[in-house]
């Protein structure tokens, strides 16, 4: 167990492991998302109030879920990096931010597309929508802050503090629909004991959420490889890992 943990902490090992896993994870994710999309668009019945318009939930809810869980990963990795001085944890945090930002954007826009016909408006400044928009800005702030430093270590530590401070927004997003009057309705799926949705509508949603999670891990694997290469650019193993690109092999950049 511990040797496995130590190996994971070794950059060349993580680089190889991520390289082997990424294609598999991506394909499983694509298959699951395809199944979930088919289930959501074709197999699930229309909603008794919203008709076929409710099917937007199959992309909106998983995106919103990912926007928050990726942030949780990013903040946890940042804290681990700060406390245990683990460079790879910082690499995971840095690699997560753009993916998380893209899912936050997706959650906001698909939500607007859903809100227009059902609520009668693209956007309102209620607590749920506003706190999710703030999440997008926190992601942007994190990435902007990183880009402002040329030295990786400084970028890691400073942006980690922002990521940890921003965690306070997660419970606000989640409970906004409970704590305040909002236009947005309460959670459907997270009441796991008693989700307010029938089984034939729920399963494609769960398949989508699992698919989106695996998709994130697959993209994370590729992005972490880039991060690790850049951070370890002077290490011997990097030149070996890049040997297939070296001029001696006849392949030039």
């Amino acid at each position: 167990m511990w040797t496995w943990f130590h190996k994971l902490g070794s950059p060349p090992h993580l680089y190889r492991l991520a390289g082997r896993l990424a294609p598999w994870l991506l394909w499983i994710a694509i298959v699951l998302i395809a199944i979930g999309t088919y289930g959501g668009l074709v197999l699930a019945p229309p909603d008794y109030q919203q008709g076929d318009g409710f099917r937007i939930i199959y992309v909106h809810a998983p995106s919103a879920w990912m926007s928050m869980s990726i942030y949780a990963v990013m903040a946890t990795a940042s804290a681990i990096g700060l406390i245990w001085r683990m460079k790879l944890a910082f690499a995971v945090a840095a690699a997560s931010a753009p993916v998380g930002a893209s899912f936050t954007f997706l959650a906001l826009v698909t939500g607007a597309i859903w809100g227009q016909p059902m609520w009668g408006t693209w956007w309102v400044w209620d607590a749920r929508l506003t706190s999710e928009l703030i999440l997008l800005f926190v992601y942007f702030g994190y990435m902007g802050l990183r880009a402002a430093f040329t030295e990786v270590q400084k970028a890691d530590r400073t942006s980690a503090v922002l990521a940890i401070v921003g965690v306070v927004n997660l419970p606000i997003i989640h409970y906004s629909v409970v704590w305040w009057n909002t236009l947005h309705q309460a959670s459907t799926v997270t009441k796991l004991d008693n989700p307010s949705i029938s089984m034939n509508m729920l399963w494609p949603l769960l398949v989508m959420i699992i698919g989106f999670n695996l998709f994130y891990i697959a993209i994370l694997a590729t992005r972490v490889r880039s991060e690790v290469l850049g951070r370890e650019r002077n290490a011997r193993w990097v030149s070996e890992a890049l040997s297939d690109l070296s001029p001696e092999n006849g392949i030039t950049a």
């Binding site: 909603d47 109030q49 919203q50 409710f54 059902m118 309705q185 307010s196 949705i197 509508m201």
Partner: peptide, 8 residues
């Protein structure tokens, strides 16, 4: 304002 219940 709709609620969080979905059913056929």
């Amino acid at each position: 304002k709709h609620d969080e219940e979905y059913m056929s």
